[in-house]
Design a binder for these strands. Sequence first.
DNA 1: GACCAGGACCAAA
DNA 2: TTTGGTCATGGT
Length: 314
Amino acid sequence: MYFYMKPVNLHGVSLDIESSLFSGQSFMWDKLSGGGMYYCAPISVSAVIIQASDAEGVEIICDSDAVDALPPEEWFSRYFSLDVDTESLFSEAFRLRYPQLAGLLARYRGLRVLRQDPFETMVSFMCAQGIGMALIRRQVTMLREQFGEPLTVQFDGGAARIHRFPTPQRLAEADPMKLRACTNNNLARARNIVAASRKVAEGCIDFTSLASPETSQEDIRSALSACAGIGLKIADCIALFGLGRFGAFPIDTHVRQFLGEWFGFPEASGALTDRTYRILSDRATDLLGPELAGYAGHHLFHCWRTEVRGLQAF
DNA sequence: GACCAGGACCAAA
DNA sequence: TTTGGTCATGGT
């Protein structure tokens, strides 16, 4: 059964689909070739194609016969976190203190932090250690193609053949020697992914309870970093992008760079040990507020990469 | 050819 | 607690 819906009324909410999908928080989306602005990804039990037709709204094509799937409008609003007011990410005091930076950030009002599937997020970021975005994306694509279920979605522009992200069960049963081909030939990483997938499949890691407001950020960190291959940074990434914890503030090399360059945090100059990571993370939370520090941090991250470093995410 | 990329982990001082 | 080596390879 196919859904075809158009358009989503954005009610004046600021949304930049391209930046949101390709700012480096997700490695699941493909840009369909053939001209038009079609973006495609398997989402949980269904597949979604988004066509950003014009400024008025977007069209969603969604194949799903899952009874528990959200209606497309609700899914869309939730996935792109349209409930968050991105106009107020940076306080008046912040904008007065950093006027030049605020000017740069104004270009990214439409950047949304996605509420993604936690398992996809976990495995994706386990593939993200010390290598570039292009290589991360390649790993996730290979994981999908080698271990994920194939799927065809019909839409106006033709048919898209994609692969779902593999289930926890599938990766838990995978042979690390075969999985290795998908993890940049890194056997340790392949073994870590199998072990972590097993924990998810067996219920040792329960994303539903981790996502609960009653679970503290520190409890999320310790639960996830109990897995080999997951440290503070990746645990925070899973919290931010996979558990909807918009206060979580992951710190990688880029974030460390702009914390020193833009805000003059002295701890940003040294190596990123667990101790300095926590200090920087706490200081960033003080600066940006506990509720949306990570959300704002992703704006800063994307802005730093594109405006200062001249990098492209995709 | 050197250096860096959305790191984590272990041994050694 | 911090430092340095290791894992890996594509891009600049």
